[in-house]
Design a protein around this nucleic acid. Structure first.
Lengths: 243, 243
DNA sequence: CGGAGCTTTGACCGGCGTCAATGAGAGTGG
DNA sequence: CCACTCTCATTGACGCCGGTCAAAGCTCCG
């Protein structure tokens, strides 16, 4: 693509000028490939790199003492990760590759310079963090108050919307590169109960499955089951400083 | 206090120069008082104001269709709220006053100018958002994977640590200005079960209660029950642009 | 053909929700 | 000072959702 991956991240929210794109190009510090299953960053390890996903699915997760796992988020093309390293010496959660994946590294020092030289982009970066945060809040509400059916439904809708946002194909359903164990770790359920729950969703005609492929048949009913809020990001550009 | 409330927010993380403090002073746009129970911002309403808590406790929350409620976070003195309004036209969650409270308004347009004129502060603001995010992730993990005992324990430890961070007294325990219903809405439980769970924590000698006052007797054991991670924020100042 | 990993299904159980009753304070008006 | 009410805390009985354990198919791969 020859274009900065950070431009890919920010360009999803507003139009960037040519000058801004070239400024973002200067921040990349190489590319890295990971195989499915690789731990990119360990919990409690050095917080480390900042990077943007260029292909594949990643996920961040935390382990409890008894060995149970909670997957916090999935990450797709365009997502910016590892920013917590600017505030924590020790990684608060782990990051792994769910599929084979490629990421594009960001130079932390030059990220600082970006705030000085391109204040509009700095402010924009700040704004895009809010979108991220709201998405976490939605998941938190789902885990706190939804039934198993609601949690799985919310998860599927969330994945669908994130895939579309990332410009990945989702119109014919999508391929879930996850075991039911992993879905359970995302939804706060056991693998067994994920199986039962998804069967019910199929029986109710809300979704279909064939192999790893999943298709949402009745988005509206599914959204009601999930207590799902369709959110509209709309970065307030009036607020941003001049470019 | 005569000092900008934003300086109160940022000053918790790093030392600010006199010049920076005065720059932050220019951002305040007045003060507002709320009585206990007031809805400061409604879900799905206009996203609205950005402000810093100067006294009292606030909380943000979401309603499900069946009337159940999930409280997302508590907010204390120094916390910066309403930033999601830079990315969403419609408020993603509601904000209410848990006790009588005072907030100090931030001028959104001048917040933009801050990124241009004080890039170090802009970058710092960006960094402090990460602390916030990690705290949300911790709560998400707790709701996803902890038992009722673990959730309540995590909640208490989290409140304790946030009070200390805000410079509020917590050494002799703290006063919980909440009903058990509200604690349940925070922990994703019913009020009845909160009652039972806290009784067990008392019987096990982990905490004591008298009236609304709560004291943590055995922080370490409580932390184990809660799967609680003591986090150390350490803003990486090497990363920040020059002041 | 055999093994490994995943899915699916059944049986069973316990944690947490639901419903309901009682108690404990705080506030209000007489 | 004493009803009366309102809110919240507490406790018990009971039921269901989702966890646990176990076994049986299914697919892929060596």
């Amino acid at each position: 693509m020859g274009e900065s991956c950070l431009a890919e991240h920010l360009g999803r929210y507003i139009d960037l000028s040519a000058k801004e794109r070239s400024a973002l190009n200067g921040l990349t510090a190489g590319v890295r490939d990971y195989r499915r299953g690789t731990i990119i960053r360990a919990e409690h390890g050095q917080a480390g790199d900042i990077f943007v996903v260029t292909s594949g699915w990643l996920f961040s997760w935390a382990l409890l003492e008894d060995g149970r796992r909670q997957i916090v988020r999935l990450h797709f093309r365009g997502d910016l990760l590892g920013l917590d390293s600017v505030a924590f010496g020790e990684a608060p959660d782990a990051i792994s590759a769910l599929t084979d994946a490629e990421v594009c590294l960001i130079d932390r020092a030059r990220l600082g310079a970006l705030f000085a030289e391109q204040p509009r982009l700095g402010a924009l970066l700040f704004a895009t963090q809010q979108v991220d945060r709201v998405s976490l809040v939605d998941r938190l509400v789902s885990l706190g108050r939804n039934s198993a059916r609601g949690r799985v439904a919310a998860l599927l809708l969330w994945i669908d919307s994130r895939l579309r946002f990332a410009g990945l194909p989702a119109d014919d359903g999508f391929t879930l590169p996850m075991t039911q164990e992993e879905i359970g770790d995302l939804a706060g359920l056991t693998a067994v109960h994920v199986n039962r729950t998804m069967r019910v969703l199929v029986e109710q005609g809300l979704i279909t499955r064939s192999g790893n492929n999943l298709r949402i048949l009745q988005p509206d009913r599914l959204a009601r089951v999930a207590n799902y809020n369709r959110r509209q990001e709309a970065i307030d550009t009036a607020w941003l400083p001049k470019g």
